[in-house]
Design a protein around this nucleic acid. Structure first.
Length: 286
DNA sequence: AGCTACTCCTGGTAGC
DNA sequence: TGCTACCAGGAGTAGC
């Protein structure tokens, strides 16, 4: 499923085809994709604007809009499970599973989504719509100290905490499993029980794994995620635990276990990530 | 505060 | 071969 590296890849590859382009028309095939807006309201807000910039915040692709040179709100695209953004040239056929399209003054931007969980929404004030998000894990605010303080100030299991976008914004199921494995931390470990050295290891793991995944244009473990160019990512070849239940750990040879934490498939090495006991296990009274 | 359950969706796959 | 049943899961919400 697209997480920060996949969304960053999407934003980078879509940018040259849409930045500076003007929106001529809008096509909507699945209304819920607009996130509650009516089709006429969405069309009125977007048609005639110029796409001034394309960037990423957390797992959102952000399209800043301008009208007559003035800011005119923005589009926030969340790929969720199976969303994709694709740019097509003029006269190129519409790709399969299209839910929303922006017809541009040259070509078109299509939002494709097999499972329809994704969103393509207009916001008059996109910054306000993103205000609930925590720090960017690759940004300057996400320091070792900030992570350590955040872990200490709560008593939650590490995995659901790292998936909480208000705690740190951009991680999902895959990269949380990978980062916890590299840091040697069990997903059910209580955040408050993590020692300073482990918090530093976790910080380093999150940053280096995300950076390496961006370099490889993300991960494509199933038939869904593709870059806007239609290529699979390459980071899945470097997975240490995600999707490797029953296979040997590449670090110690123990069999990777699959468990469910917070309704999410979760992958751990029982030796590299020992299961906590007592107060260190989240959800237990000491 | 933080947990679980539920919702939204459908292609892929396992089982027969 | 063809059918059915079930699964995956990000994020929002409700209820405890």
């Amino acid at each position: 499923m697209p997480e920060l590296p996949e969304v960053e890849t999407t934003a980078r590859l879509v940018r040259p085809g849409v930045e500076g382009r003007r929106v001529r028309a809008v096509e909507v095939e699945w209304l819920r994709t607009l996130g509650g807006s009516s089709e006429p309201a969405f069309r009125a807000a977007v048609v005639g604007t110029r796409i001034a910039a394309v960037h990423r915040r957390a797992k959102f692709v952000c399209l800043d809009l301008e009208r007559r040179g003035c800011p005119a709100g923005g589009l926030l695209v969340h790929l969720r499970m199976t969303g994709r953004l694709v740019v097509t040239a003029p006269r190129e056929p519409v790709p399969e599973w299209r839910k929303v399209s922006l017809q541009l003054d040259r070509g078109a931007l299509h939002f494709l989504d097999v499972r329809k969980f994704g969103r393509f929404t207009f916001h008059a004030d996109p910054e306000a719509a993103l205000a609930h998000l925590g720090p960017e894990p690759l940004g300057p605010e996400f320091t070792e100290e900030a992570l350590w303080a955040g872990l200490r100030s709560r008593r939650r299991a590490l995995k659901p905490l790292l998936l909480d976008q208000s705690f740190v914004a951009g991680l999902g199921n895959i990269y949380v499993d990978e980062a916890l494995h590299r840091a040697g931390l069990h997903p059910l470990r209580s955040s408050a029980s993590v020692r300073r050295a482990s918090a530093e290891a976790l910080h380093q793991a999150i940053r280096s794994i995300l950076a390496a995944a961006i370099e490889r244009e993300g991960s494509s473990f199933d038939t869904f995620y593709r870059t806007p160019e239609g290529k699979p990512g390459e980071y899945q070849h470097l997975f240490q635990v995600y999707g490797r239940g029953g296979q040997p750990c590449r670090t110690c040879g123990s069999t990777i276990q699959r468990l469910v934490v917070g309704q999410r498939g979760t992958h751990v090495c029982p030796r590299c990530q020992p299961r906590p006991r007592g107060a260190a296990l989240a959800g237990r009274r000491p």
